[in-house]
Design a protein around this nucleic acid. Structure first.
Length: 271
DNA sequence: CCCGGAACCTGAAGGC
DNA sequence: TGCCTTCAGGTTCCGG
C-alpha cells in the first residue's frame, strides 16, 4: 500500500522524466476514478498543458501545471503509476493513460479502482484538509504534543488520520509505535512528553529509512519503473504476526484497530 | 470537534 | 474442483 515513502519514491522517479512534458493525449479507462471535474472536462482542460513540477503532499502525487492548475493522483490501496515507452499496451488493471508527448506514457494502474484523479484550479482545494508533513523540520514536538492533547482515540488511529499528520498509513504507524515503544491502543492524549518525543523521532527515522529503501512492497506496490521496494525486509513488526520481536523475542501480536490489522510487541510496547 | 463504523472496490486466501 | 466467505486498508460519509 503506497504511503508517504512509496509516493515519495514515485515522485522522485517521475520528476526528472516528466518535468516540462506536455499532456498530448489522455484516456480514462475507468471514468469513476476521475473525481473532479467530469472526465470530459478534465480531459479538455488538461490537454496541451505542460508540467512545471512534480511534487508530493501526504499521499497525493501532484503535477503542478503552467496554468497554475494542479493534477492530483491518489493511489489508495492498490494503485501504481508506471512510466512506459509509447506506445505501450494497457494491461487489465490500467485505468488511465497520460501520453506525455516525449515518447513516454504514464499508466495509472489500480486493481481495485479505489485510486483517484482530480484536476483543480488550486491544489489547496485538496491539500488544505491535510495535517502537517511528518518530515517537515517546522513540525516541533511541542506542536505534536499540543495536537495529541485533543485526541482520545487510540494513538494508532490518530497516526493514520491524514488530518493529523499527512502520509502515515497502517504499516508505518505500526513501525513508528514499535520504535517509540508505545502501545497502539494507548489514548493519544495519555502519551507522556517523553513518549511524544520518542514518537516524533521514531516517525522521522522510520519514514526516512523507508524512503532510503524505496518503500515497502507488501502486496503489489511498485515504483514508476515497476520495481518493488525493499523496506519490507526491514520491518520490525508490520505484517510479522507470530514472528519473534527483534528486540525481546516475544511473539508479535496482531489485533484489529478501526478494522485495520495492527502489529505490535506486547512486551516492548506498554500501554 | 471528536469518535467509530460502514461503504467503496476486487483479487487472494481459506473453509468446507 | 468449486463455491462461498473473509480479508486487505486509504479515504469519505454518516450517525452518535
Amino acid at each position: 500500500m503506497p504511503e508517504l515513502p512509496e509516493v515519495e519514491t514515485i515522485k522522485n522517479d517521475l520528476a526528472p522524466e516528466v518535468k516540462g512534458c506536455r499532456f498530448v493525449a489522455v484516456a480514462f479507462l475507468c471514468p469513476q476514478m476521475v473525481r473532479r471535474p467530469s472526465p470530459d472536462e478534465l480531459h479538455q482542460r488538461l490537454i496541451g498543458q505542460t508540467v512545471q513540477e512534480v511534487t508530493r503532499r501526504g499521499k497525493y502525487l501532484i503535477f503542478r501545471l503552467h496554468s497554475g492548475e494542479a493534477l492530483l493522483l491518489h493511489l489508495r490501496m492498490s494503485g501504481s503509476l508506471l512510466l512506459k515507452l509509447s506506445p505501450a499496451e494497457p494491461n487489465s488493471y490500467t485505468r488511465a493513460i497520460f501520453n506525455l508527448g516525449n515518447g513516454l506514457e504514464l499508466h495509472f494502474c489500480d486493481r481495485r479502482k479505489l485510486g483517484t484523479i482530480e484536476l483543480v484550479r488550486d491544489e489547496a482545494e485538496v491539500t488544505a484538509k491535510l495535517g502537517p508533513e511528518p518530515l517537515d523540520p517546522g513540525l516541533t514536538t511541542e506542536v505534536l504534543s499540543q495536537r495529541l492533547s485533543r485526541r482520545r482515540a487510540p494513538i494508532k488511529a490518530v497516526l493514520c488520520d491524514q488530518a493529523f499528520l499527512a502520509g502515515i498509513g497502517n504499516m508505518y504507524a505500526d513501525e513508528a509505535l514499535f520504535a517509540a515503544r508505545i502501545h497502539p491502543l494507548k489514548p493519544a492524549r495519555a502519551l507522556s512528553e517523553e513518549e511524544i518525543e520518542r514518537l516524533h523521532q521514531a516517525i522521522a527515522e522510520v519514514l526516512e529509512a523507508a524512503i532510503g529503501n524505496r518503500g515497502a512492497t507488501i502486496s503489489n506496490y511498485s515504483d514508476a519503473h515497476g520495481q518493488p521496494g525493499v523496506h519490507q525486509f526491514f520491518f520490525s513488526v508490520a505484517h510479522r504476526g507470530g514472528e519473534p520481536c527483534p528486540v525481546c523475542g516475544t511473539a508479535i501480536q496482531r489485533i484489529p484497530i478501526r478494522n485495520r490489522g495492527t502489529y505490535f510487541c506486547p512486551n516492548c510496547q506498554n500501554k
